[in-house]
Design a binder for these strands. Structure first.
Lengths: 140, 140
DNA sequence: CTTGATCCTCCAGTCGCTGGAGAATGTACG
DNA sequence: CGTACATTCTCCAGCGACTGGAGGATCAAG
C-alpha cells in the first residue's frame, strides 16, 4: 500500500494535523518514517491507532488512560482485567460528574425560576450568588 | 473595621491566595490598597465579592460570565433580565452536558458489561475503542 | 534579636490541544 | 520549464483557570 501523508491521515482519522503532531510529541503516536524531504509518512496501522485514540478521547478518556489502553491493545495476550478496570474507573468518573451536574442544575433552576424580571436590586440570581445560604445544598 | 490581609481574605472566602492574586490580575477583583510595605489590604466588601465569585465558579460559571454578573450586581437599578438570561444560558449548558454524559455512560457501560475477563485479544473494551461501529450512537 | 510565618513578584507548569510565522517542499497548469 | 498555489516542516505562543516554586522582603511572637 502506498503511504499516507499527514493530511490524508488527518482526513481518514478525523483528527487535525497539529493534533497528530502533538500526539507524536507526547508519545501517543510513534514517530513515523519520513520521506527524503522530511515529510511524515503513515500506513494503515497509523490510521487504526489514531482512530482508537480519537474514539477514546471522544469517550472522555484522558491521555494517560489512553496510553495505558494502547499498551494493553498492543499486547493481545495480556489479561483483560486492566482494560476493564480502566473503563470501570472511567464509568465511575462519568457517574460522579452526572451526579454533580444534576445537583448543579437544581441550584441554577432554583436561581432562575422565581425571578420576577424586576431590577437587579431584587434579582434572585444575583442574590443567590451573593449569599450561599440560599442554596439547596451546601456541599460545594 | 480593620483591614484584612490576603491570608485572612483567603480563609474567609475559601479561595487560595494565588487564586486571589490571579483574579486581581485578570480584573475580576479590583486592585486593593497596599500597606507601606506593599502588602494587599482588603475590607469586608472584598470578602463578599470574592465569595460571590467563588460561588459562581462552583456553580460552573465561566470567568467571563462572572465578570458580567458582577457588573450587573454592581448596578442595583439594572433590569434583571440580563442576569436571568446568563443564568438560563448556563442552565441550558448544564443540561446539554448532562445529556452528553448520559449518552457517554451508556457507551462505556456497553463497553464494560460484556467483558468476560479474558485476554485483551477478546476484550470488549479494546474492541469497542478500536472500532467505532460497535457504538450505540455515532454522533460523537 | 531571632525565628518562623506570611507576604511580595515573577515565572513556569498543568491539560489537550490550536493556530500563526516563516521556510521548504510538492503538485498542477499553461 | 516556469509559476502559482497547496501542503508540509519546525518552533513558539496562547487558550482557561488556576497552581506552585524560587528568591527575597517583612511581620509577629517569644
Amino acid at each position: 500500500m502506498k503511504p499516507l501523508t499527514i493530511g490524508e491521515l488527518s482526513a481518514q482519522a478525523g483528527v487535525k494535523i497539529p493534533t497528530i503532531r502533538y500526539y507524536e510529541s507526547i508519545g501517543l503516536l510513534p514517530a513515523p518514517l519520513r520521506t527524503d524531504s522530511n515529510r511524515r509518512t503513515y500506513d494503515a496501522a497509523a490510521v487504526s491507532r489514531l482512530r482508537f485514540i480519537r474514539h477514546a478521547r471522544e469517550l472522555g478518556f484522558e491521555v494517560d488512560a489512553i496510553r495505558q489502553l494502547l499498551m494493553l491493545a498492543d499486547d493481545p495476550a495480556h489479561p483483560c482485567g486492566e482494560a476493564d478496570a480502566l473503563a470501570r474507573a472511567h464509568l465511575a468518573d462519568i457517574e460522579s460528574k452526572i451526579a454533580r451536574l444534576q445537583a448543579l442544575r437544581a441550584e441554577v433552576r432554583n436561581m432562575v425560576e422565581p425571578c420576577p424580571q424586576g431590577q437587579v436590586r431584587t434579582c434572585h440570581v444575583i442574590e443567590v450568588l451573593a449569599d450561599h445560604s440560599h442554596c439547596l445544598h451546601d456541599h460545594h
